[in-house]
């Protein structure tokens, strides 16, 4: 009888114990679907994305949506206040979430948020970084790797140019930003394990 769904894409971590697993999932799905649609709309605006095959567009989005959402919603994880804000608008302390069952995954999400927000990127830089997160040729199921790779290289080049231009005395920022990519992959894997645990419950 799992009583909590500890994802800030939910309106609240509390779930109705009288609801079926399917009902809980339906409610959760209703909460996160608009954010997923926004990721798709964002992808469509990436120059060159629509030129990829529909199969590769879907593969990139399937593999990368969680990571894009982590970047977009990193500010929900407030490291200074040690709180997480859920989509319903309520803040929960890390301690409260731990008492509800949150473990290492929450720690990793807080660490990521601290690392990313600490770079103090502009909206434009964050947006371009998000395109680099999404357009990644090594995702599983990509058919035309060369096309995705070419687009990926273009986006990384633009990101490097923008970061170099905006942070002339902070040459390490671009490297630090690229180091967030494997961190996101790791979070993605951890998230899949959390989803599996949810399904089992």
């Amino acid at each position: 009888n799992r009583m909590h769904l500890l994802c800030p894409m939910n309106t609240s971590p509390h779930v109705n114990p009288h609801k079926s697993g399917h009902g809980i999932w339906e409610e959760f799905s209703h909460s996160f679907t608009p954010a997923v649609r926004e990721v798709v709309e964002f992808a469509k605006r990436i120059p060159g994305f629509s030129d990829l095959s529909q199969h590769d567009q879907v593969s990139l989005l399937k593999a990368g949506t969680f990571e894009v959402l982590v970047v977009r919603f990193a500010s929900l994880f407030d490291v200074k206040d040690r709180t997480v804000t859920f989509l319903g608008g309520t803040k929960y302390s890390v301690e409260a979430l731990r008492a509800m069952g949150a473990g290492d995954f929450l720690t990793s999400m807080m660490d990521f948020s601290e690392n990313l927000m600490g770079l103090s990127l502009s909206e434009e830089e964050m947006s371009l970084f998000t395109t680099v997160v999404l357009i990644s040729a090594d995702r599983s199921g990509i058919e035309n790797v060369n096309s995705v790779e070419a687009l990926q290289e273009t986006l990384i080049r633009h990101l490097k140019g923008l970061i170099t231009k905006n942070h002339t005395n902070e040459s390490a920022i671009f490297t630090k930003l690229l180091l967030r990519l494997p961190e996101l992959r790791s979070l993605n894997n951890m998230h899949s394990e959390q989803l599996l645990a949810f399904k089992i419950h």
Binding site: V36, R37, V40, E41, V58, L61, K62, T65, L195, L196
Partner: peptide, 27 residues
């Protein structure tokens, strides 16, 4: 559970959002 995106309905949401784009695209 090798493909969480498909199992959780994510692929369906993605496909529908992408299809909307195709329908809106002028020929």
């Amino acid at each position: 559970f090798s493909d969480p995106a498909s199992n959780l309905g994510l692929e369906d949401i993605i496909r529908k959002a992408l299809m909307g784009n195709l329908e809106e695209r002028p020929e």
